[in-house]
Nucleic acid binder design. Structure first.
Lengths: 342, 342
DNA sequence: TTGTATGCGTTATCAC
DNA sequence: GTGATAACGCATACAA
């Protein structure tokens, strides 16, 4: 006499109501093994009446830890970048009938524990940036949780999915140089993410190749608009006035816009600005922002696909680099052709 | 002789290595019951050597379905709105040591099944918009999965968390009327979300109160920038030229900006525009966009908090309405004071 | 303080 | 075609 209220029915309740054994109930719902049509009908009706659905946890336990769930670990969740990656990831997951578990480490000290816990509840994990130490990555993958890395270098035996940074950054810097910008400041923290480090490196290489002085350090800055605003304000207010600033992402660049506007500086007349990511706002602001278009959504899609393949036993550990497209707009034009009255 | 490779160790392996029973191992790691210091030490060392962590699935099975995971169901994942809500939700979850499982229904026909499946793996679920039918909401809550509704009306016994819409929309429309805008078109689909329906209703009420003709239907439009662009283009190209458009959200409004710009129409000189949400881009575009600021992140925070309370047994079913702040910027100024040359 | 035995809800392997 | 029953990995009441 179960199924009073509050408590969900279990397989025994259904079996009793249909007058069969639990084995038969399991066969009917799992579609495994032969069942007489009449029996199947009775079981289905009983399950329906009791609103019973097999318990996923018990199912996962007997399956030896197959959950039908994949996870993704972000450093943060804000901004435009991570949500777009997540959207692509989720799309693939749902298409393949997998649940999606997410975690943002926020630089917490116990990130490794959090991720270890997460790994216990998923079939596989996409790990982004430097959210956890390399040895944990290796251990998780060795312990039966498939792992794919995202936006960071690969680890032996474990594939990474990334977007191109170095060459695109060099090309972007070269574009600025061609437009007559000589002093170029990088705003962003290379230690914040592998992607940022590569962009900074790309700028350095371009300056070196042009025979220009290479700044030894960037203006450190978080990847957010308020941080970009503050960093640019501080820079400009202490009298530093480069020809151009190359920002680690679009949000920083939009913060620079605000700082420049406050100080009556014209873009690109007084200061050329470039971003990275090509967020929707980049083409709406004025002047439209020169940036590098990363396939954000596709990063999520490809990493999810690789992860599902690995969960299914694929041992291919080749990394994947997705193309980034330089997107030139008005914010990086030469001073001469775009001088405006502030 | 377990723990060869590839396979994770279990509690028996650890117990054997430490020379104790599995009960003792369980006690040590769970912190339940008394254990001699020396024994505890041996167990800890064994667990460490085998890199063993208790299996969360088995643990959940024993606990009768307590997973330490909460879930949230979105209609979609794109745009600026959902990610921000998610960020707030995730923050509360992690602070309370809970995992986060997400699902976007994308209007799929089998959404109810997907959500039912999700409910099997979480302690509680925040359900947003009209992603699943009311009776399923009631059933889930009755079957042991705590439920909190978000951005939609409450169901008997189940609380909802929402942001204010009706009064704010009326106030926004009244603001437009005061600025001399007489014909106001609503762009957005009231059937898309309860929030949108209330905004549309607010406009109707304001027009009615002002004794002006009330349009019988809005211009239907998805909540995205491209859709807003298309809808506005179609409207303008068929000669309809209202004084003002009130958009269901900011993304639609930004699409209207693009359509207006293409046609040489000045905002607000030829067409006043308002949005909803106050996304970051709203203050960056020119002219800055008049909108209504919803506490997006707080919607996520509050719904997560209510959910955790319900998971813990709280039966309070009072709903919560968060304040929305009308944010007047230049895009809704009167025609006279802001006429610009296109 | 520690060990033994049972149950959580399901699937799968046997018999029948 | 169908029914017992043994795992799956862990927590815990009960014994010792």
């Amino acid at each position: 006499v179960r199924h009073d209220a509050g408590t969900a029915a279990n397989i025994y309740d259904v079996a009793a109501r249909a007058g069969v054994s639990i084995a038969t109930v399991s066969r009917v719902l799992g579609g495994t093994g032969p069942v007489a049509a009449a029996t199947r009908q009775r079981v289905l009706e009983a399950a329906d009446a009791l609103r019973w659905r097999p318990n996923e946890v018990a199912r996962a336990l007997v399956a030896g830890g197959r959950f039908g769930v994949i996870g993704i670990v972000f450093p943060e969740l804000g901004g435009q970048y991570f949500p777009e990656v997540l959207a692509g990831f989720e799309d693939v997951a749902v298409r393949n009938e997998r649940g999606v578990l997410i975690l943002a480490t926020h630089g917490r000290a116990n990130s490794a524990d959090l991720v270890s816990g997460l790994a216990q509840r998923v079939d596989g994990l996409v790990v982004m940036d430097r959210t956890i130490p390399d040895d944990l990555v290796g251990h998780l993958d060795g312990a039966g949780t498939a792992v794919v890395l995202l936006a960071r270098p690969a680890v032996t035996g474990i594939p990474a999915v990334r977007a191109e940074n170095l060459h695109t950054a060099t090309a972007l810097a070269t574009h600025l140089l061609r437009n007559g910008h000589r002093s170029i400041t990088f705003i962003g923290d290379p230690d914040a993410a592998p992607d940022v480090a590569e962009r900074w490196q790309g700028l350095q290489q371009a300056l070196l190749a042009a025979g220009l002085p290479v700044p030894d350090k960037p203006v450190p800055c978080e990847l957010s608009q308020p941080a970009g605003h503050r960093a640019a304000a501080a820079m400009l207010d202490r009298g530093a006035r480069p020809d151009a600033v190359m920002c680690a992402n679009d949000e920083i660049a939009l913060g620079v816009y605000a700082a420049a506007r406050e100080r009556g500086l014209a873009i690109p007349g007084d200061l050329a600005v470039t971003g990275w990511d090509d967020v929707p706002a980049a083409q709406l602001v004025s002047p439209p922002l020169t940036t590098a278009h990363q396939p954000l959504r596709e990063l999520g899609v490809r990493s999810a696909e690789r992860l599902l393949a690995r969960v299914a036993g694929d041992r291919d550990d080749a990394s994947l680099v997705l193309p980034t497209v330089l997107t030139i707009r008005a914010s990086s034009a030469s001073h001469d052709t775009h001088r405006e009255v502030p």
